[in-house]
């Protein structure tokens, strides 16, 4: 792997390679370039995961002609697909070096256990939403109970904006979460559930289920579960599969000419709505 990166850098395939470097026992993200080829010997693939694709997008904003290499898990590839669809990166500007991956219903290789949810405590299991269960298991609870459980989770929010800050899909210049008409300033918890639902709606057709938001959440709100539900609806209603569908999601289209074929709503999906 190190040799591949060295070759890419020396032959000019890429100008910078985003991976991880071991620094004082901590794997931290690092941009390897051809001026410091010796650093590549310290390159590691994990286990900590940072939004490398977000860093790549930021670098391309500053250097639009740069060629970037990136250490890629399955979620990185989905992220790059969606970023290309949203015209944040151009295809061909980013070279990926595939490494092992973590489990997600959107991915196929699942031999890394890094994203296995932590054990759920008794109080959370009784009153909150257990992020380790499946979406189907959660939906078997009565609607009112589910609402109460989600509200319990949302009221823990300390409004750190970490979910948005770490999200590789959050590239908007203006964020609805900072719009004072939607989310008031200076209140804790933030306006719930609007704060989380605004973000959830914006994740429709964008969330690539990398799980970084949930890992960054100091209040341990099961955000991944929330966005999985959104993606599930996108699949059921619009036959849109984030990360693999080649077009923008139908929500982004104005007018009546959708570029994605609308799948007929199944009886089961209709009942769920």
């Amino acid at each position: 792997m190190q040799d591949t990166v060295k070759t890419w850098l020396t032959e000019g395939t890429v100008d910078i390679f985003l991976g991880y470097k071991m620094v004082e026992g901590h794997p931290i993200p690092h941009g390897f370039n051809r001026d410091r080829l010796d650093e590549i010997d310290e390159m590691v693939t994990g286990p900590a995961r940072y939004p490398l694709e977000k860093f790549a997008t930021q670098l391309l904003q500053m250097h639009p002609d740069a060629k970037i290499g990136i250490l890629a898990r399955d979620c990185t590839k989905r992220a790059l697909n969606v970023l290309t669809i949203w015209q944040q990166i151009s295809p061909g500007q980013i070279q990926t070096l595939q490494v092992n991956c973590c489990p997600s219903p959107l991915g196929s290789n699942t031999d890394c256990s890094y994203l296995q949810p932590a054990d759920t405590g008794a109080y959370k299991a009784a009153h909150g939403v257990d992020g380790s269960q499946s979406l189907q298991a959660l939906e078997q609870m009565p609607e009112e109970e589910r609402f109460d459980r989600w509200m319990y989770e949302f009221q823990k929010c300390i409004k750190c904006y970490g979910c948005r800050n770490v999200c590789p899909m959050c590239f908007c210049r203006e964020c609805s979460l900072e719009n004072k008409d939607l989310v008031g300033n200076g209140h804790l918890p933030p306006d719930i559930p609007i704060f989380h639902l605004v973000r959830a709606v914006h994740m429709a057709g964008r969330c690539i289920d990398c799980g970084l938001c949930e890992q960054a959440c100091p209040a341990e709100i099961p955000l991944r579960m929330l966005y999985r539900k959104i993606n599930d609806m996108m699949g059921n209603l619009f036959d849109y599969h984030t990360g693999s569908s080649p077009d923008q999601p139908p929500f982004s289209l104005l007018g009546d000419k959708p570029s994605t074929g609308l799948a007929p709503m199944t009886a089961e999906a209709a009942k769920n709505e």
């Binding site: 901590h26 931290i28 900590a48 995961r49 930021q58 670098l59 300390i158 750190c160 970490g162 960054a216």
Partner: peptide, 27 residues
């Protein structure tokens, strides 16, 4: 740090104190 300019802050995932989380001030 990009091109010698500080452009962002991230929580350190492997740090024993915050384990990849930060408050709004830290971010």
């Amino acid at each position: 740090v990009v091109d010698g300019r500080l452009i962002g802050t991230l929580p350190m995932k492997t740090h024993p104190v915050n384990k990849g989380k930060l408050c709004i001030k830290g971010w």
